[in-house]
């Protein structure tokens, strides 16, 4: 077994006492996510993990390696809009090798094929939904792990950890299964799959604190250059950087501790109309 070097954390000083560590908030989030990933791996086959190359999905790949002793025992999927930043493609190629990932690539149809009634940025974002749907159908995935969080956006706050998608990949928000005591429903009918959300309870700041604690690599775009940085990464043409001087993980955390604007403020589609995000999600957007 290949062992990655052990972290030097102050908790390690308790070793000689042979008492369990007192779990802090990140330990608890981590333990819960590992539990969820292990449930998905056991219950849903075939399974894959959506790797958007953003900070959340990197944390998710990291948590999968935690759950499976350094391995990711299912494919990771990158649904490429072909409009991502060049830095993201370079990152993908580097860490596919370093993390020994089984990478599946999917492509998105041109925007002309997407519902013209959607506002322009949302229509562009919906390409990804179509690309994802094609991948799920092609590989007949029963489970797809996605890195959405409740605190990102109001409709995501309504999500389940195991979220069934009916035929046509639709999300039936009015008729979601009960989910409690860490028991996840896994109904199955032809054409159906389950979206698994191991990061649902994490907040943006938790993600950053975990990245800092674990030393998880990120695309440089998250760090300030010339007074601007990206807080959330989408396609080049529909994502805008925010004003910031934070050029390290620690500075980003300090900035978020005092920030009062929403993470997706730089995402154009969120501001086009009141219900656009919900419309996208019902149709299968993340």
């Amino acid at each position: 077994m290949t062992q990655t070097p052990i972290l030097s954390r102050d908790q390690a000083t308790t070793t000689s006492l042979a008492q369990p560590r007192i779990m802090d908030d990140l330990d608890q989030l981590e333990a819960q996510s590992i539990f969820i990933l292990r449930e998905a791996y056991r219950k849903l086959k075939p399974l894959s993990l959506l790797w958007s190359l953003g900070k959340d999905s990197n944390v998710m790949v990291w948590l999968a390696r935690k759950a499976f002793m350094g391995h990711v025992p299912f494919p990771v999927m990158h649904v490429d809009t072909e409009k991502k930043f060049p830095e993201m493609y370079a990152f993908r190629d580097e860490y596919t090798k370093k993390w020994n990932l089984d990478l599946l690539l999917g492509y998105c149809p041109p925007v002309e094929e997407i519902d013209p009634s959607l506002p322009p940025a949302a229509r562009s974002a919906a390409r990804k939904t179509a690309g994802l749907a094609a991948m799920i159908d092609k590989h007949r995935f029963r489970g797809v792990i996605a890195g959405i969080r409740r605190d990102e956006q109001a409709t995501r706050a309504k999500e389940r950890v195991f979220s069934p998608r009916g035929a046509g990949h639709r999300w039936d928000v009015r008729n979601q299964p009960p989910e409690f005591w860490d028991q996840y429903a896994t109904p199955y009918e032809d054409g159906m799959h389950i979206r698994v959300h191991p990061l649902l309870s994490w907040r943006e700041i938790d993600i950053w604190r975990y990245i800092e604690r674990e030393g998880i690599p990120l695309v440089d775009l998250y760090f300030a250059k010339d007074g601007k940085r990206y807080r959330s990464l989408g396609d080049q043409d529909i994502t805008n950087p925010v004003e910031s001087t934070a050029s390290t993980v620690a500075e980003v955390i300090a900035e978020l501790e005092t920030s009062r604007t929403s993470e997706r403020a730089g995402r154009a589609m969120d501001h086009e109309s009141e219900d656009v995000f919900e419309r996208l999600r019902v149709a299968g957007y993340l």
Binding site: T4, I6, L7, R9, Q11, A12, T14, T15, A18, Q19, P20, R21, M23, D27, Q28, E30, A31, Q32, I34, F35, R38, R65, K66, A67, F68, M69, G70, E214
Partner: peptide, 19 residues
């Protein structure tokens, strides 16, 4: 008591996901 990329401890307590 096995974990990946975590401080090595021969003990684990309630709430931890371990192997």
């Amino acid at each position: 008591v096995c974990r990946w990329h975590a401080p090595e401890l021969p003990v684990a307590g309630a709430g931890e996901s371990i192997a």
